[in-house]
Lab assay of single mutants.
Amino acid sequence: ENVVSAPMPGKVLRVLVRVGDRVRVGQGLLVLEAMKMENEIPSPRDGVVKRILVKEGEIVDTGQPLIELG
C-alpha cells in the first residue's frame, strides 16, 4: 500500500512529515480534523515519504489520497 488515503472527510490541520522522511508503521503522518476532533493519521507501513498530496488547511473527502510512500 503506497498511498495513504483519508479515512473520513475533514480538514488537514498539520502535516507531520516531509518528503524524504523515513517513517515507521503507526507513526503519525498528518492530523485531520473531523467533527471538531483531531485525528492523527498513521503510516500503514515502514517506508519513505515520496510525495505529500495535500496542504495544511485543505478540505479532503473520504478516500482522497494524502501521502505517497516509497
Rank of each mutant, 00 (worst) to 15 (best):
Pro44Ser: 15
Pro7Ala: 10
Val49Ala: 07
Val49Asp: 00
Val12Leu: 10
Leu30His: 02
Gly20Thr: 15
Thr62Leu: 02
Arg18Trp: 05
Arg22Gly: 02
Ala34Lys: 08
Lys36Asn: 08
Met8Leu: 12
Val25Ser: 12
Arg14His: 11
Val49Tyr: 02
Glu1Pro: 00
Ile67Asn: 09
Ile52Val: 12
Lys36Tyr: 08
Ser5Arg: 01
Val3Lys: 01
Pro65Ile: 14
Val31Lys: 11
Leu53Glu: 15
Glu38Thr: 10
Ala6Ile: 05
Val4Cys: 01
Leu13Met: 12
Leu53Gln: 11
Glu38His: 10
Gly20Leu: 11
Glu33Ile: 10
Pro42Ser: 07
Glu40Arg: 02
Pro65Ser: 04
Ser43Phe: 03
Ala6Trp: 10
Val17Asn: 11
Ile41Glu: 08
Thr62Asp: 12
Glu56Tyr: 03
Glu33His: 07
Pro9Lys: 05
Pro65Leu: 13
Leu32Gln: 10
Arg14Gln: 06
Val19Lys: 10
Val17Ala: 13
Val15Trp: 04
Lys55Val: 14
Asn39Val: 09
Val3Gln: 11
Lys36Gly: 05
Leu30Glu: 02
Ile52Ala: 04
Pro7Glu: 11
Lys55Thr: 09
Val23Arg: 05
Met37Glu: 08
Arg45Glu: 14
Arg51Asn: 14
Lys36Thr: 12
Pro42Cys: 01
Val23Asp: 00
Gln27Glu: 13
Arg14Phe: 07
Lys50Trp: 05
Lys11Gln: 13
Val19Gly: 11
Ser43Trp: 08
Gly20Ser: 09
Ile41Ser: 09
Val31Phe: 04
Leu16Gly: 11
Ala34Gly: 07
Leu13Gly: 11
Asp61Ala: 07
Leu69Lys: 01
Gly63Lys: 05
Leu69Ser: 15
Val23Pro: 13
Leu16Cys: 01
Val60Lys: 02
Ala34Val: 12
Ser43Leu: 02
Ile41Tyr: 14
Val3Met: 11
Leu66Ile: 03
Val15Pro: 03
Ile41Val: 11
Val60Asp: 00
Val23Lys: 07
Gln64Met: 11
Pro44Asn: 14
Val4Trp: 01
Ser5Lys: 03
Met35Leu: 09
Ala34Arg: 05
Met37Gly: 05
Pro9Asn: 04
Lys36Cys: 02
Arg45Lys: 15
Leu29Thr: 13
Glu58Trp: 03
Val48Asn: 08
Leu53Ala: 14
Asp61Asn: 11
Val31Tyr: 03
Pro42Arg: 14
Gln27Phe: 05
Val12Gly: 01
Pro65Trp: 11
Val49Lys: 00
Thr62His: 14
Ile52Thr: 14
Leu29Ala: 03
Val49Ser: 06
Val19Met: 06
Leu16Lys: 05
Val3Ile: 06
Glu58Ala: 14
Gly28His: 10
Glu38Phe: 10
Val60Pro: 03
Lys11Leu: 08
Met8Ser: 15
Val54Glu: 04
Val25Lys: 09
Val23Phe: 13
Arg14Gly: 12
Glu56Ala: 04
Leu13Trp: 06
Val17Thr: 10
Glu33Gly: 14
Asn39Glu: 05
Val25Ala: 15
Glu38Leu: 14
Val4His: 04
Ala34Cys: 00
Lys50Thr: 15
Asn2Met: 06
Leu32Glu: 06
Met35Ser: 14
Asn39Arg: 06
Glu68Lys: 00
Val49Gln: 03
Ile59Glu: 11
Glu58Leu: 03
Glu38Ile: 12
Ala6His: 08
Val60Arg: 05
Lys55Asn: 12
Glu58Ile: 10
Lys50Asn: 13
Ala34Gln: 14
Arg22Trp: 06
Arg51Asp: 14
Ser5Glu: 08
Gly10Phe: 09
Arg22Glu: 04
Ile59Ser: 08
Arg51Cys: 01
Val60Leu: 04
Val19Asn: 08
Val49Cys: 01
Gly26Thr: 09
Gly70Asp: 10
Lys36Ala: 08
Asp21Ser: 02
Ser43Ile: 09
Gly20Ala: 06
Gly57Glu: 04
Arg14Ile: 14
Ile67Trp: 14
Asp46Glu: 07
Glu56Leu: 06
Gly70Glu: 06
Val48Ser: 06
Glu40Met: 10
Glu56Ile: 03
Ser43Pro: 05
Gly28Gln: 08
Arg51Leu: 14
Val25Gly: 15
Lys50Met: 12
Asp21Cys: 01
Val17Cys: 01
Glu68Leu: 02
Ile67Arg: 00
Leu30Ser: 05
Val3Cys: 01
Arg18Ala: 13
Arg18Leu: 11
Leu66Trp: 06
Gln27Met: 02
Gly57Trp: 06
Asp21Tyr: 00
Glu40Cys: 01
Val23His: 09
Asp46His: 03
Thr62Phe: 14
Glu33Ala: 14
Arg24Met: 02
Glu56Cys: 01
Glu33Val: 10
Gly10Asn: 14
Glu40Pro: 05
Thr62Gly: 07
Gly28Arg: 04
Lys55Tyr: 06
Leu66Glu: 01
Arg22Ala: 05
Pro9Leu: 10
Leu16Tyr: 05
Val48Tyr: 06
Val15Lys: 04
Val19Asp: 13
Glu40Lys: 03
Gly63Pro: 12
Val60Trp: 03
Lys36Ser: 05
Val25Cys: 01
Val23Leu: 07
Met8Gly: 07
Met8Tyr: 06
Met35Cys: 01
Pro9His: 07
Val60Met: 10
Val25Gln: 15
Thr62Glu: 07
Asp21Asn: 02
Ile59Cys: 01
Ile67Thr: 12
Val17Gly: 11
Gly63Asn: 10
Ala34Asn: 12
Leu29Arg: 00
Leu69Cys: 00
Arg18Phe: 09
Pro65Tyr: 07
Gly47Phe: 03
Val12Asn: 02
Arg24Cys: 01
Glu58Thr: 09
Val4Asn: 14
Asn2Thr: 14
Pro44Arg: 02
Val60Tyr: 14
Gln64Tyr: 06
Val12Ala: 07
Val54Trp: 03
Val12Arg: 00
Met8Thr: 06
Pro44Leu: 12
Arg14Cys: 01
Ala6Val: 06
Ile41Cys: 00
Val15Ile: 11
Gly26Ser: 14
Lys55Gly: 08
Met35Thr: 10
Pro7Thr: 06
Glu33Asn: 10
Leu32Asp: 00
Gly70Ile: 06
Gln27Asp: 03
Glu40Gln: 08
Val15His: 05
Gly10Val: 15
Arg51Ala: 14
Val49Trp: 00
Glu58Phe: 04
Val60Cys: 01
Val25His: 14
Val4Phe: 05
Asp61Lys: 07
Pro65Gln: 09
Met35Ala: 03
Gly26Gln: 08
Lys50Leu: 04
Leu29Gln: 10
Met37Ser: 06
Ala34Ile: 07
Arg18Ser: 12
Leu16Ser: 13
Lys50Val: 14
Lys11His: 08
Lys36Leu: 09
Leu32Ser: 10
Lys11Ala: 11
Ile59His: 09
Val17Trp: 13
Gln27Pro: 09
Pro7Val: 13
Thr62Ala: 06
Asp21Gly: 04
Pro9Val: 09
Val19Ala: 13
Arg51Glu: 13
Pro7Leu: 14
Leu29Trp: 06
Pro42Phe: 10
Gln64Trp: 12
Met8Cys: 01
Gln64His: 14
Ser5Trp: 02
Ser43Arg: 00
Val17Pro: 11
Glu58His: 06
Arg51Thr: 12
Arg24Phe: 05
Arg24Asn: 07
Gly10Pro: 00
Gly70Tyr: 12
Pro44Lys: 11
Asp21Gln: 04
Val31Ile: 07
Gln64Asp: 06
Lys36His: 07
Pro7Tyr: 08
Glu1Arg: 00
Val12Asp: 00
Lys36Pro: 08
Glu40Leu: 04
Pro7Gln: 07
Asp46Val: 03
Asp61Trp: 05
Leu32Ile: 08
Gly63Gln: 02
Leu66Gly: 08
Pro44Trp: 15
Glu58Asn: 05
Arg51Lys: 03
Val17Met: 09
Arg14Lys: 03
Asp46Thr: 10
Gln27Lys: 02
Pro9Thr: 08
Leu69Pro: 04
Arg18Val: 13
Leu16Asp: 11
Asp46Pro: 02
Gln27Val: 02
Gly47Gln: 03
Leu32Arg: 02
Val19Cys: 01
Val31Met: 04
Gly20Gln: 12
Ile67Pro: 00
Ile41Asn: 11
Lys36Arg: 13
Arg14Met: 12
Glu56Gly: 08
Leu30Asn: 02
Leu13Glu: 15
Gly26Pro: 09
Gly26Ile: 07
Lys11Asp: 15
Arg51Gly: 15
Val3Ala: 13
Asp21Ile: 01
Val4Lys: 05
Ile52Leu: 06
Ser43Gln: 04
Asn2Val: 03
Pro9Asp: 04
Gly47Cys: 01
Leu32Cys: 00
Lys50Gln: 10
Glu38Asn: 03
Lys11Ile: 12
Glu33Trp: 06
Val25Glu: 05
Leu16Gln: 02
Arg51Val: 15
Leu13Cys: 01
Val15Met: 10
Val3Arg: 01
Glu33Leu: 07
Arg24His: 02
Ile59Tyr: 06
Leu66Pro: 00
Leu16Asn: 11
Ile41Ala: 05
Ile52Gln: 05
Val17Asp: 06
Arg51Met: 15
Val4Pro: 12
Leu29Asn: 04
Gly70Lys: 07
Met35Arg: 10
Arg45Met: 14
Leu69Tyr: 08
Ser43Ala: 11
Asn39Lys: 12
Val12Thr: 05
Val25Pro: 15
Leu32Gly: 03
Leu32His: 14
Leu30Ala: 13
Arg18His: 14
Arg22Cys: 01
Pro65Glu: 14
Val48Lys: 03
Val23Asn: 12
Gly28Tyr: 02
Leu30Gly: 07
Asp21Pro: 02
Gln64Lys: 05
Gln64Asn: 07
Ile59Lys: 09
Arg51Tyr: 15
Gly26Asn: 06
Val23Thr: 09
Ile67Lys: 00
Ile67Gly: 15
Pro44Tyr: 15
Asp21Thr: 02
Glu58Pro: 02
Met37Pro: 06
Met8Val: 10
Pro7Asn: 06
Glu58Gln: 06
Val23Glu: 06
Pro42Met: 14
Lys36Asp: 05
Asn39Asp: 07
Ile59Arg: 02
